[in-house]
Design a protein around this nucleic acid. Sequence first.
DNA 1: AATGAATGAGACTTCATTCAT
DNA 2: TATGAATGAAGTCTCATTCAT
Lengths: 186, 186, 186, 186
Amino acid sequence: MKVTQEKREQSINTMVDTALTLFSEQGYDATSIRTIAQRAGISLGLMYNYFKSKEELLVEICRRGASDVRVSFEQVSPEWQKMSAIERHIRQTVKILKEKKDFWKLIHGIRMQSEVVQRLSAEMKEQTAYVETQIRQNLIEAGIPFPELEAKLYFASLDGLAQHYLLHDNYPIDDVATLLIMKYKR
Amino acid sequence: MKVTQEKREQSINTMVDTALTLFSEQGYDATSIRTIAQRAGISLGLMYNYFKSKEELLVEICRRGASDVRVSFEQVSPEWQKMSAIERHIRQTVKILKEKKDFWKLIHGIRMQSEVVQRLSAEMKEQTAYVETQIRQNLIEAGIPFPELEAKLYFASLDGLAQHYLLHDNYPIDDVATLLIMKYKR
Amino acid sequence: MKVTQEKREQSINTMVDTALTLFSEQGYDATSIRTIAQRAGISLGLMYNYFKSKEELLVEICRRGASDVRVSFEQVSPEWQKMSAIERHIRQTVKILKEKKDFWKLIHGIRMQSEVVQRLSAEMKEQTAYVETQIRQNLIEAGIPFPELEAKLYFASLDGLAQHYLLHDNYPIDDVATLLIMKYKR
Amino acid sequence: MKVTQEKREQSINTMVDTALTLFSEQGYDATSIRTIAQRAGISLGLMYNYFKSKEELLVEICRRGASDVRVSFEQVSPEWQKMSAIERHIRQTVKILKEKKDFWKLIHGIRMQSEVVQRLSAEMKEQTAYVETQIRQNLIEAGIPFPELEAKLYFASLDGLAQHYLLHDNYPIDDVATLLIMKYKR
DNA sequence: AATGAATGAGACTTCATTCAT
DNA sequence: TATGAATGAAGTCTCATTCAT
């Protein structure tokens, strides 16, 4: 029973990891279930013992990704304690981006078309609503005019940063992030 | 002969326009040639008289899009004469974005996976290299440190702005753009 | 244009005929589209140019079958003019059964499970409602008690006859039909 | 040991009952072994410890159904003693039909295609040959002409009755059966 | 005896593309 | 030039069945 459970989870992990890699490399649509199965070293049919469909597999990948984000935002490393909310947010975003580059490549690659990802985005927004509130609060406290618009610009900039990091090799994300942080210092 | 030529061009225009609309609505992969032909009111086979393949059609769409960008950047409206290079660049970008929303939705929707679009991006970069130089020059002249990085941040921010405009309904792009411009005033 | 139209119809006829034969031999579920295509000498994909799905093909077969029934019931051969409504109905039913044995084998083979066929049955009932009225009227005029129940028994008997004819080789349907007719003489 | 034997039989009973229910609801082909196992609350693999295949399971269901028929025909309730052979046969048939509606729905649903059921039908004919002889004898004694054909018509009518009872909700089978019986009175 | 993970053939369906007319 | 019939590879998904534990 326990062995079975373990085997099951191991298989699922293998599938999810392989799928994520391939999805991020070739795109969701361009990756066939057969290819995933082959690369994962399992049979085609096994996928369907655990996931009702290809989309379900995508959903699971997203669920895990979202979970990782949540965890990552919850555990603030000690050295970041004294940072401003914005600096911490940027640093954390960059960290997550680097750690889960595959996942974010997948997300950014399909978010314009996929309903799944749009649903996920909405959910993640809810999760990180607290962070957003902090950011906005921070902008207000800094006496910055138009804090609402300013927040929009902030998120757009950070998103663009992510996009370019995912799109270009050797993008100096840390340096550009530092520059962005400086814009909001004092 | 000339009439024929005109009919030909008109057919092509219809095809390209219809394809662009559908691509931006449903995505490139999810749109079939048959659907395009039906919506364009022409026969399936005719598409292949004008375009060697579906990808060729995409290429043509991109060519036209790139051309529009070039034209748009060349003709500077009089009222923008006295703007700074950056302000002008942002305003023009926003203008192009609004005018060709379909096109940009398509581009942003597939640029992460499609080689075609990556090639196009490279080409467009070459086209707009002059603009980029101007921007960088402008940053330098403004005495801003790290002009290279600063340019990267600038383009990332503008790209993020575009992304959010394309992604969200009723995005107040003009206001956010104004805010971005203000960052570079003086 | 006309040629195209003809080719189209010819292809469709071939498909429908082949499908009907195979469906009646092996059953609807057990017959694959691939098999139909092979036997019809056409490519697999062509089916889907004309029929949205396997079920749609079944629907078309049923439509044609129902149409045949309607036509058959409309044209009463001269020698049947003087028959009673019931005798004529039985004779016509037997005639249709023999002429379209394939079709009826298919129908009787799947009517217990298939919604398609149940819908069709309902439609055909509407078509032949007039006949049913005639039968019932006839039973009433013959002074038979419980005409409603009697009509039910009549249709059940006729249906059972059909069933056994379709199920057993060399079933003497004409003789049994004659016997049934005699039950309702005078 | 005996306990084991009992458990075994109980498991088998559960499987057979569940399978019968599902087969009659959705049809034999449309019901998967996995679904049966889930609904029966046993594991997928266990089915194959008791039945070599899905068809074997069908065979067992049919065996039991046939056995029930035999038993039912053997035990004649006292009140039916004085009925004619035909009246008794019809009443018994209706009784069996009602008691095992699931089973008969399954049988009637697949008998046109399934070899299994055709084999079973043949076997059941042998089993009930005695009854048939009685019926035929009865028809002869009643001085009815063409007793062979008459027997065929009789069985067809009864079969049609069954078919309509299985096919339509609230079918007044008792009343129609009574009417059929009356046809053979005296 | 019992479990359910694993398999792979095969079903339906879509779609870019070709080609005869 | 224009049509749409025809093709067949490839994709997703199902399912009876096997087998290690």
